[in-house]
Each structure stands twice: as C-alpha cells, then as structure tokens.
Simulated assay, not measured.
Amino acid sequence: MSAASTPLRVLTGSILAVLLLTGCQAIEDGSRVISRADLVNDLASRLDRATELTYSAEYQLTGGESASIAQTQEPLQAAYSYPGGKLTVSAEATTECQTAGPKPSCILDAPPAQTNRPSVTVFTNANKRGLVTPPVVIGLLTAAALDPNADIEQTDTTIAGRHATCVRVAGVDDAPTSQFNACVTAEGVLGQFTGTLDGNAVEMALSRYRNTVDGSVFELPSGATVIDQRPGTK
C-alpha cells in the first residue's frame, strides 16, 4: 500500500491550519454564518470518527443497484461491496475481488499501514462502479477547501432516518471532479454523494444503517480463484 496514505486526523488539521492562515470565506445558510474551515473541519472530523465505529451501511446506487460498507473494530477490518466487485481491508491483506462473470476471482495484496485508513488509490474500481468511499470524499473536501474560488453551500437533511449535514460544491479546479454534493450523518457515516469520478456519473444514497455487522461480509466469494501477491508469499 502506498506510503502516501495520510491519517485523516492529520489531514484535517492541515486543512484547518492552511485556511486559518489564508483567511476564511463565510458561508451563509439561513440565519447561520460559518466559515469554510469550520465546515470542512467538521465534516472531515465526522468521517474520521466513523473509522472508530462498528457499523454496516447499505446504499442505493444509480439504476437501482446497491452497494455496502461495513467495518468492525475487533478485529479491525472493513469491506466495501459494489456491483461486480468487492474490496476487503484487514491487518492481513488488502483483497480485491471481481464478482462479475461465471467465476469470481480475488487478488490479495499487502495490507495498508493503517487498516482503517487505506490509501484512496485502492478505491479506484469502487469509484468506477458507483461506490464512493469516505476517504475519497475527504480528498474532495480538501481540494474544495483549498480552492479560494470554490463555491460551497451547506444544507441539513434527513437520510434513512438520520440527520445529515450536506455540502454542495462547485468550481473546484484542482480535483478529480469540479462539482459534487456530499452528505455526512451525525455519526460520521457518508449519507449521500452525487458527482462525476473517473469519467463516471455517480449517485448514491444511504438506505440502511446498523451498528452491527454480519461477519460473512468479510469472506471471499464462494468458489473464487485466489491469487496471493503479498510479499513473502508464493
């Protein structure tokens, strides 16, 4: 896993420090006025806190398909399932599976330096197939916060029965997408995302949240061909 992966707490602190030095742009939502730094720092902190939770979240994707994110703390592991594929991250391996076709296949690679904070590069296939993960959203928020020309609006809503804070971002120059909408629940779970990543239009919304996890989500697909590419394995 790339050594470039940065813990979200450090990243969030860096965003805040830069913005406080360069000045903050006020964002008005009804009668409230908050700074860009406050907004980004709050959402980043919520997403970061979610890495310390045990939960499972189901999402409705464009076209009626579905995806899910699940993680536990003991043992520390996470699973991301999306149309045609699955990614699991644990202290033992980063495993990416292709589930489309007559026979699934999986590739085991080295685990990330921090199991609950893998590099965003491992989520490339998930992005292409409609599942945008919290680390990817953190990167987009970072780019928006550091762009003085970005237009950021805040709203509040309820998604799957849970309160969420949303941002609508537009006009970001140096980012994978110039505009997107993202919502984060009070627990810190990604509630909604709309945007374009890797040339694909993505629209996903939380449909169910639970603070329990079915252990089977971490298992490899039945009958999968497994290729182990971890260092020291044959």
Score class of each variant (00 low, 15 high):
residue 141 L to G: 02
residue 223 G to N: 08
residue 142 T to N: 07
residue 53 L to T: 12
residue 81 S to N: 13
residue 196 T to D: 08
residue 94 T to N: 00
residue 25 Q to H: 11
residue 64 G to E: 07
residue 105 S to E: 10
residue 161 G to C: 01
residue 181 N to Q: 14
residue 70 A to H: 12
residue 124 T to C: 06
residue 77 Q to S: 11
residue 178 S to L: 00
residue 210 R to I: 06
residue 177 T to M: 00
residue 23 G to E: 00
residue 30 G to T: 07
residue 208 R to D: 08
residue 62 T to C: 03
residue 196 T to M: 09
residue 174 D to S: 12
residue 39 L to A: 05
residue 78 A to W: 10
residue 113 A to C: 00
residue 32 R to D: 01
residue 55 Y to T: 03
residue 128 K to A: 03
residue 157 T to Y: 06
residue 131 L to K: 08
residue 155 T to D: 10
residue 213 V to L: 05
residue 189 V to N: 01
residue 104 P to L: 03
residue 199 G to R: 06
residue 174 D to W: 06
residue 33 V to A: 05
residue 72 T to K: 14
residue 136 V to I: 12
residue 2 S to M: 04
residue 119 S to P: 08
residue 221 P to Q: 07
residue 16 L to G: 04
residue 154 Q to W: 12
residue 129 R to T: 10
residue 196 T to C: 04
residue 151 D to E: 10
residue 86 K to Y: 07
residue 156 D to G: 07
residue 86 K to M: 13
residue 181 N to F: 13
residue 13 G to N: 13
residue 230 R to N: 01
residue 28 E to N: 10
residue 100 A to G: 11
residue 88 T to C: 01
residue 158 T to A: 05
residue 75 P to L: 12
residue 168 R to M: 01
residue 201 A to I: 05
residue 172 V to F: 01
residue 42 D to T: 13
residue 223 G to L: 04
residue 5 S to F: 14
residue 85 G to K: 10
residue 200 N to R: 10
residue 55 Y to D: 00
residue 201 A to E: 09
residue 19 L to I: 04
residue 149 N to M: 11
residue 94 T to D: 00
residue 207 S to K: 09
residue 62 T to Q: 12
residue 48 D to L: 15
residue 100 A to Q: 13
residue 172 V to H: 00
residue 198 D to I: 05
residue 12 T to N: 04
residue 136 V to P: 04
residue 212 T to R: 11
residue 201 A to M: 05
residue 230 R to E: 02
residue 203 E to Q: 11
residue 149 N to Q: 12
residue 15 I to D: 02
residue 210 R to D: 11
residue 128 K to Q: 05
residue 186 A to Q: 13
residue 131 L to V: 09
residue 196 T to P: 04
residue 165 T to Y: 00
residue 153 E to N: 09
residue 225 T to K: 07
residue 96 E to P: 12
residue 48 D to A: 15
residue 141 L to C: 02
residue 12 T to H: 01
residue 121 T to I: 08
residue 170 A to P: 11
residue 141 L to K: 01
residue 64 G to L: 12
residue 210 R to G: 09
residue 195 G to A: 03
residue 92 E to W: 12
